[in-house]
Design a protein around this nucleic acid. Structure first.
Lengths: 340, 340
DNA sequence: TTGTAAGCGTTATCAG
DNA sequence: CTGATAACGCTTACAA
């Protein structure tokens, strides 16, 4: 029932004007120490709470930022979001999370609806390589900062935070080679997305650098799902000479591959060694723990948020494109460690 | 650069007044079909987009709802959120997600900051049983719908959507008994929270109903983490006569328990059978798949959202407390299926 | 059916 | 240092 207290209420009580109260609450310079204290005290006393909507309308800032990810039920994205929150909450921002579920229409739809909700910025991981660039230029026209993390696109003036997927893949593949593997397959994914292209390139270069023969037929594009991993592994096992190792661009497909390998009575890592990517918690939990590449997602989220804060605080129109690249870490586990 | 188009711009262009434009856009009844069409057409033509902040300030509705969960990186909560989104997005609502990470101060902090962000309602799963009720009565005073899902508290006028934890636990325990287990331990959790109390009670009743001896020392309270499951299982294994089954109130502690059991050279399910709760995806992925209780989280989220929509549309002050209880489903897997 | 005008709660500009 | 006033963009009585 109790009507919301406004600055007018507290102005009336103190025989002041709303403007003064506003200034006092915002720690404006031109205000006497006395009234400042007085106002702030009676504000808490009266249970005053600022109407953020009104402030937003006036200032044009909503103190909401949008975060768009393919899905939140993977530890990787959930951790990134946690990093973003840790950085943004103390600054008074709220985070609106949207999922695309890898559907293209949801991607543009989410952006539009976030714009409609007047967010101050958008942090996102691209789902679909085919998303039209004009939706992004739309953002920059409106001076709304856009920051990519993990899955980015190369767009003028748009900053990004990624890991060095190339070197992560290179190290993982080199590790498999060091374990004595000679015929290493690669479960890839849509290579129009930079992360998958770079993982592919890192894998390929490691093969070449170590004097192995690069065989394109061992590279198969699939989607980051357990079931897809199974299907793809089936194809590989049906080849005339099957691979003796699999480097997967996703932990989920790596898991599917492992299941399929076991179903065929082959041993891991002895017959086929496996390595994944992302260091999802389940890779550590499995009885047969899975080698993977850690991407320090919390750090990634924090940095993305910091970049946003820089850009939103930067009133001049000169946009600088900042590209932060983190270093991945290979975590070696049972699925690839041969007891040589 | 391009200034935002407002209803004034389109009014000027059409030699109308802003009020008429507003009415036309809102499909107000008292407007001629002609002008309605004309306005709507020029609106799209001019790329008009409603300023939701202004509407919110005027109407007192932000079309944002807050969702508070312990964490988002569990499939259970992520799925609930997905269900909520599916129901709310089509109605024009946005979802602001907050995590408590099971910290009490974050729970009240999140509520306050959502209130500050002027959300139209809050859907939440309680983290901490000790959270003071006055923060909730605060909400109802402001006529902001509050809906609990999964972890609820019994508060006048506050609706909730839960599953029948009692029967889920009862069925799981009965299943273990049917497998021939006689000494069934229970990994519990903070029983001030209804879900854990009910899982405990269901477990206990199943024991009693089936003529087994109920032994309180086999019930240990712990926290929903893999590491905690390991620790707790260690205690159970150190008992004079160790249990021959474990019913865990969480999949994560069940997983920890399984690891510890294996580390001690015991076989699952032969020496000790294990069942968890929540049907997290990893329970299915494991080589030794884990028996668990499914809670149909997407459905839970959808219903919670529907209840919110009902309450927010319900202008009269009479609050009706709605309590929806879903039926859980026991999923039997290797960790408890003895080949009798 | 349309126009006029007030108001949602703030903040910014201009005086004083 | 403080007050008066306008403005942010929209909705809605009340008038016409």
């Amino acid at each position: 029932m109790s009507k919301k207290i406004t600055i007018y209420d507290i102005a009336k009580k103190l025989n002041l004007t709303a403007a003064t109260v506003s200034r006092a609450l915002n720690n404006n310079l031109k205000i006497s120490e006395n009234t400042r204290k007085l106002v702030q005290e009676t504000a808490v006393e009266m249970d005053y709470e600022q109407n953020t909507l009104a402030r937003a309308l006036k200032s044009g800032k909503s103190y909401n930022v949008g975060v768009i990810v393919p899905r939140i039920d993977s530890n990787f994205f959930a951790s990134i979001i946690r990093g973003i929150e840790e950085e943004l909450y103390p600054k008074g921002y709220h985070v609106i999370i949207c999922q695309t579920h890898d559907q293209e229409d949801l991607e543009t739809g989410n952006i539009n609806s976030l714009l409609n909700a007047q967010v101050d910025g958008i942090l996102m991981s691209i789902s679909n390589a085919k998303t039209k660039n004009n939706i992004f230029s739309n953002l920059s026209q409106k001076h709304i900062p856009l920051i990519f993390f993990d899955r980015k696109k190369d767009i003028d003036g748009v900053s990004s935070v990624t890991i060095d997927d190339y070197s992560g893949a290179y190290e993982a593949t080199k590790h498999l080679i060091n374990q004595g593997c000679k015929r290493i397959a690669h479960l890839s994914n849509d290579r129009l997305l930079e992360i998958y292209k770079n993982r592919y390139l890192g894998y390929k270069q490691a093969i070449i650098d170590n004097g192995l023969e690069f065989d394109e037929s061992l590279v198969i594009e699939t989607r980051s799902k357990v079931e897809e991993g199974k299907k793809t592994m089936k194809i590989l096992l049906d080849m005339e000479t099957r691979p003796d190792a699999v480097f997967s661009s996703s932990d989920f497909t790596a898991l599917g591959a492992i299941q399929e390998i076991k179903n065929n009575g082959l041993r891991i890592p002895d017959d086929i060694a496996v390595a994944g990517f992302s260091n999802e918690p389940f890779t550590r939990f499995m009885e047969l723990s899975i080698t993977s590449v850690d991407q320090s997602p919390i750090e990634m989220g924090r940095i993305a948020a910091q970049v946003f804060l820089e850009e939103v605080g930067n009133d001049n129109k000169i946009k600088t494109k900042k590209e932060v690249v983190l270093t991945p870490e290979l975590i070696i586990r049972k699925s690839s460690r041969k007891r040589i």
